[in-house]
Amino acid sequence: MTITAFITGANKGIGYETARQLTAHGVTVLLGARNPELGQAAAAKLRAEGADAHFIRIDVADEQSIAAAAAQIEADFGRLDILVNNAAISGGLDGDGKPSSGTLATLRHVYETNVFGLVAVTNALLPLLRRAEAARIVNVSSEVGSLAGRTDPNSPMSQMVSAIPYTSSKTAVNMVTVLYALELKDTPIKVNAANPGYTATDLNANSGFRTAEQGAEPSVHLATLPADGPTGTFWGHIWGQEEYGRIEW
């Protein structure tokens, strides 16, 4: 039976590597992207490597685009086994980047993609995920959104002074993950949040110390969990350590 995965923001970076690594598991990958040219090129690159890859146009901040993507997936594949909500933006920095310098315009802009878009995509595709034998939903989060890390004086996260939009959007993603996991706890669907770690991508001007290949590994792990795997967890790279593990919310 063919396993199909849809990854948002998949034309580059962690999203693309998540798609590429899933193909190694024999998964048919649907690469979601706003830009048709870039999305088609990414899918073609994977097909050249022997993957079953397809481009699906989607703008996660546009409800009509989301509905069209869901309709296309249903028409072409009938169901969905894996959803990786990877698309995100940083929003840049207002002023000196401190919370008190932020603007509501930036906050709204970031939440439209990172939070509202994630919820809209999940709700649109949940009927297709319910048709799968045991679907997996992976929400790509970040350790910078961990309340535990931010308030633990022994954590490197507590030393970071960050702008509100991106950081708090990932805290919101964590709660959204928990709520979906609770709603779906009596189903075979598992919902988890992935922490890629500080990965070099366009989102941070490629300043991260982890590669996109490494950053994709937590998402791929959670997307391919066995039946006895966890749900409602935050899992991935732990700052300062080589291994992966569970992260405190």
Rank of each mutant, 00 (worst) to 15 (best):
H109A: 01
V110N: 00
L125Q: 09
G95M: 10
T103N: 07
N123K: 15
V119H: 14
H109M: 04
Y111S: 03
L126G: 13
V119M: 14
S101W: 05
T113K: 01
G92Y: 05
D96W: 04
G95I: 05
L104F: 13
L128P: 00
V110I: 03
V110H: 01
D96P: 00
A124D: 07
G92S: 04
A87I: 03
V84F: 11
D96C: 00
R108F: 04
V84W: 12
A124K: 13
A88S: 14
L118M: 14
N85S: 15
A105M: 05
L107E: 07
N114F: 00
I89K: 02
G95E: 05
A120R: 10
G117Q: 06
A105G: 07
V115H: 10
N114I: 06
S100M: 13
S100V: 13
A120K: 06
A124C: 06
H109R: 15
V119I: 15
T122G: 12
D96I: 02
G91D: 03
G97R: 09
E112N: 12
S101C: 07
G117D: 06
H109Q: 15
L125C: 08
G92P: 12
S100R: 13
I89N: 02
T122F: 07
L118V: 04
D94W: 04
A124S: 10
F116D: 08
T103E: 03
N123A: 07
P99W: 12
S101L: 11
N85C: 11
V110R: 01
L118N: 08
S100W: 14
L93S: 11
A87F: 02
T103H: 03
V110E: 00
L125F: 14
G97M: 03
G95S: 10
N86K: 13
G92T: 06
F116P: 04
N123Y: 02
V84C: 07
N123G: 09
T113P: 01
A120E: 07
T122V: 08
V119L: 14
G95R: 06
G95Q: 02
T106M: 03
L107A: 11
V119N: 08
N123I: 03
G95V: 03
F116G: 04
N114M: 04
G102I: 06
A120Y: 09
N114T: 03
G97Y: 12
A120M: 10
L118P: 01
K98Q: 11
P127C: 02
L128Y: 01
N86D: 15
E112Y: 07
A105K: 14
H109W: 04
V115N: 06
S101H: 15
G117W: 09
V115W: 11
L93W: 12
G102K: 04
G95W: 06
S90I: 01
D94A: 13
L125R: 08
A87K: 00
T106H: 05
F116L: 15
R108T: 09
G91T: 06
A124P: 12
S101I: 10
G91S: 06
V115M: 10
G117V: 02
L107P: 05
G102S: 14
H109L: 03
G95P: 08
V110D: 02
A124Q: 05
P99L: 12
N86A: 13
K98L: 08
S90K: 02
V121N: 01
V121P: 01
N86C: 09
L125E: 10
A88D: 04
F116M: 14
L125K: 09
A120S: 15
S100D: 10
G91W: 12
I89Q: 01
I89C: 09
D96S: 05
T106I: 05
